Amino acid sequence: MRMAMSYQQTTTGVKKSPPDTPVGWTEERLAALRSARALAHGSRTLWEIARHTGGRFLPPASAEERTAWPLTDSQKERLAASWREPIEPLAEYLDRHGICAIFADDPGYPAELLRIPDPPYVIFLRGTPLRDEVRIAIVGTRRMTSYGRRSAAFFGGELGRAGITVVSGLATGIDAESHRACIDAGGRAVAVLPGGVDDASVVPRSNMTLVRDILAADGTLASEHLPGTDMKPYSFLYRNRIIAGLSNAVLIVEGDHDSGALVTARLALEQGKEVLAVPGSIWSRASKGPNRLLADGARLCESMQDIWEALGMDGREARRTTQARSGLPPTPAENCILELCGEERTADELARLSGFSAQEVASALSLLELKGRILNVGPKTFLRLP
Rank of each mutant, 00 (worst) to 15 (best):
113 L>Q: 02
63 A>S: 14
312 G>Q: 01
74 S>Q: 13
306 D>A: 06
29 R>D: 02
196 G>I: 02
304 M>P: 01
251 L>D: 01
156 G>K: 02
227 P>L: 00
24 G>H: 06
128 T>K: 13
299 R>D: 03
152 A>C: 11
92 E>I: 06
338 L>A: 07
88 E>Q: 05
245 G>I: 00
315 G>L: 15
328 L>F: 14
190 V>L: 15
307 I>N: 00
201 S>K: 06
243 I>S: 04
162 A>Q: 09
238 Y>D: 13
158 E>M: 12
262 L>P: 03
239 R>C: 04
175 D>F: 08
227 P>M: 00
4 A>M: 11
336 C>R: 15
203 V>A: 08
6 S>W: 10
231 M>W: 01
67 T>Q: 15
385 L>H: 00
56 R>N: 09
385 L>G: 09
310 A>G: 08
312 G>W: 05
2 R>K: 09
326 S>W: 08
302 E>S: 06
354 S>M: 08
162 A>S: 10
347 A>L: 15
241 R>T: 07
364 A>Y: 04
29 R>M: 05
198 D>I: 08
139 V>W: 01
366 S>N: 11
289 G>M: 07
325 R>N: 01
296 D>C: 03
247 S>V: 07
102 I>T: 13
282 I>Y: 11
103 F>Y: 13
247 S>M: 02
384 R>H: 00
325 R>Y: 04
214 I>T: 11
168 S>K: 09
346 T>G: 15
349 E>M: 12
292 R>D: 02
196 G>C: 00
98 G>A: 11
144 M>L: 14
41 H>R: 01
166 V>M: 07
